[in-house]
Nucleic acid binder design. Structure first.
Lengths: 114, 114
DNA sequence: TGAACATATAAGCAAATAGTTATATACTAT
DNA sequence: ATAGTATATAACTATTTGCTTATATGTTCA
């Protein structure tokens, strides 16, 4: 019972994070690609700290993992997280956001960091 | 493209609503039973307006439907909503909240309205 | 070492959220 | 009609959220 209570708490916290258009789009992208902060800055046209703060929240719940590659830090969905199976069907039902990455490539801004 | 954009917006809005422990528990219960406001008041120990406001939000997005039966209004998950297939896997992965209804029955508070 | 770049953290602020109390509406039954 | 019960709406408030700007940290490379 305590466990179940914990689970629904945790599920609600996860859904709250996903219930933001920016983070949801990020997660959909990171489910297929490792992405770095500067890409998201380009995509969403938010300040770099805004992007960092979104990623921080996702990381705090264990939803994403980071991997430093030199100057850059790449984030991707943490598929080892025990709640990944909870999240997966949600992400799978979302429309692809690949066009956003393609746009970056066309503008040449993707190559700058990746 | 516009349509996809709309979809991810809508998905984020739905997830935001589900990202609240109270509403998430409500949804899990209403996926299996029609429930009335007074039951939720008992279960969550919130004021009646608080419960009504949660249900209003769920109704506004089309996630639940209401059916008046005399004095009472019963709410249940709207399985005809086009986004029900989006929500269903989420609800299915949550632990049953039946114990909360059972508690009411034991206290005799469920029978008062249903 | 120091300049340039990528990211993180801190502090502040406006808007959104989730509760409250007070009040209105709607149905039931005497 | 009126009293009792169930629900909805309105107005208010404290907290949370998601951005901003300013600043700190960490890496690369001349």
């Amino acid at each position: 019972m305590l466990q179940k209570s914990f689970e629904i708490d945790k599920a609600a916290n996860i859904l709250k994070l996903l219930g933001d258009k920016t983070r949801l789009t990020m997660m959909k992208l990171m489910d297929n690609h490792a992405c770095c902060v500067c890409e998201f800055v380009e995509i969403f046209q938010f300040s770099q700290p805004a992007v960092s703060q979104h990623l921080r929240k996702l990381k705090d719940l264990g939803l994403v993992v980071e991997e430093r590659k030199g100057q850059w830090i790449f984030y991707s969905v943490n598929k080892n997280n025990e709640y990944y199976s909870f999240i997966k069907p949600i992400l799978d039902q979302l429309p692809s956001q690949e066009d956003k990455l393609k746009e970056l490539e066309e503008k040449g801004t993707r190559i700058t960091c990746c």
